[in-house]
C-alpha cells in the first residue's frame, strides 16, 4: 500500500514536474555550443547574441567552443544532449551542407534538432585581384569563359563558404576553373591581395575591409538586395548572374524533444537580441544584419534547413567533394 502510494506520488511528480521545470526555465546557466574555435566569425556572432540573451533570460548564456570536423562534432554533441534547453547550438550554413559533405554523419540535421530561429545572413562578394582585367561582372564572366585554363579560383577549404560560393559560380558559368584551396580565409585573402590567385567569392566579413581599402576588386554581392556597407556594389542579379545567390546564414537550435515552452522562451530571447542596438551595430560592422522577425522563428529555420540541404546536395555531389 505504502509502496503504491509512493509510486503514484512519484508518477504524479514526474508528470507534473516536467512542465513545471520548463515553466521555470531557465533556472541555471545555458550553454551555447559553437562548433568552431574561439575567435572565429561564428564565435563572434554567438558571443554577441549570447550576451544579449543572458540579459533577457536572467541567466548566463555561456559560449562553449566544441570545434572539429567542420562543425559536426559540436553539432553532434548538442544533438545528443538532454533536451532541456540548457544546451543549445549556434551553427552556420554548415548545418545544411554537412548533411551531404559528411557521408557518415552521426546525427540527422533535419530531424535531430528543435530549431529556435535564424539569426543572421552574411552576404558574400565576388572579388578579384587588383589588376584583374575585367571591369564589371559581365566582362568577368566573358573573360572567365574565354580563358578557363588561365583563371584560378581560391577558396578557404572544403565546406567553407567560399568553397560553396565558388561551386555555385562555376555552375552558373558552366565553366570549371582551377580551384586553389587554402586553410582558412586569411591565407586565401592574402594570396588574392598579393595577386597569386585571380578570383574568390567570400563573406563580406572578410572582404569589406579589403574592398574599401582598394586591395581587391569587387564585382557583385550575392544577396537579393545591396548591402548597406557597400552601397555601390551591384547584386549578382542586377549584374546579370542571377544564379549566384548565397549567404552564410546562422541558426540557433536545441536538441530534438526540447519542450515547446522552452523553445518559445529561447526564441523570444533571440528576437530581443536581434533588435538590440549593440548587436545590430556590431553585426553591421561585420557587414551583416539580423534576419527579419518573420525569419527568426522555429518554423522558418526548420523549413530553411530542409530547403538548403536539398539545394546544396546536387551541387556537392556533382563536384564529388566530401569531407570524410
Amino acid at each position: 500500500m505504502r509502496f503504491s502510494t509512493l509510486a503514484v506520488t512519484a508518477f504524479a511528480l514526474a508528470l507534473g514536474s516536467a512542465p513545471a521545470l520548463a515553466q521555470n526555465y531557465p533556472s541555471r546557466p545555458v550553454t551555447m555550443v559553437v562548433p568552431f574555435a574561439a575567435g572565429g566569425p561564428t564565435d563572434t556572432v554567438a558571443r554577441l547574441v549570447a550576451q544579449s540573451m543572458s540579459q533577457t533570460l536572467g541567466q548566463q548564456v555561456i559560449v562553449e567552443n566544441v570545434g572539429g570536423a567542420g562543425g559536426t562534432i559540436g553539432a553532434g554533441r548538442v544533438a545528443k544532449a538532454d533536451p532541456d534547453g540548457y544546451t543549445i547550438l549556434l551553427h552556420h550554413i554548415g548545418q545544411a551542407t554537412s548533411a551531404t559533405l559528411y557521408r557518415k554523419l552521426a546525427y540527422d540535421p533535419k530531424t535531430d534538432f528543435a530549431p529556435i530561429g535564424l539569426v543572421t545572413d552574411v552576404p558574400m562578394t565576388i572579388v578579384a585581384k587588383k589588376d584583374f582585367p575585367a571591369k564589371d561582372l559581365k566582362e568577368l564572366v566573358a573573360y572567365v569563359k574565354a580563358n578557363p585554363d588561365k583563371v584560378t579560383l581560391a577558396n578557404a577549404g572544403v565546406g567553407a563558404a567560399s568553397h560553396l560560393c565558388g561551386m555555385l559560380f562555376m555552375q552558373a558559368l558552366q565553366t570549371p576553373l582551377t580551384t586553389v584551396p587554402y586553410k582558412g580565409t586569411g591565407p586565401a585573402m592574402n594570396d588574392l591581395v598579393g595577386g597569386q590567385v585571380d578570383l574568390m567569392c567570400d563573406q563580406t566579413t572578410n572582404t569589406t575591409g579589403q574592398i574599401k581599402g582598394g586591395a581587391v576588386k569587387a564585382y557583385a554581392v550575392t544577396t537579393p538586395t545591396r548591402v548597406a556597407s557597400l552601397p555601390d556594389l551591384p547584386t549578382t542579379r542586377e549584374a546579370g548572374l542571377p544564379g549566384v545567390e548565397v549567404a552564410v546564414w546562422h541558426g540557433l537550435y536545441a536538441p530534438k524533444g526540447t519542450p515547446e515552452v522552452v523553445v518559445t522562451r529561447l526564441n523570444a530571447a533571440l528576437k530581443v537580441a536581434l533588435k538590440d542596438a549593440t548587436v545590430k551595430q556590431r553585426f553591421a560592422e561585420l557587414g551583416t544584419e539580423p534576419v527579419t522577425e518573420a525569419r527568426a522563428t522555429p518554423k522558418a529555420l526548420g523549413d530553411f534547413v530542409v530547403a538548403e540541404i536539398d539545394r546544396w546536395r546536387p551541387l556537392i555531389q556533382a563536384a564529388g567533394v566530401y569531407a570524410d
Binding site: A38, G39, T44, G186, T205, G209, K212, E285, L286
Partner: peptide, 18 residues
C-alpha cells in the same frame, strides 16, 4: 586569428582602413 576575433567583437575589423 584569435586577436581578429577579439577585435571584431569590439567592432574593429582589422584591415587597411583602420
Amino acid at each position: 586569428a584569435m586577436m581578429v576575433g577579439a577585435m571584431t567583437i569590439q567592432g574593429i575589423v582589422p584591415g587597411p582602413t583602420v
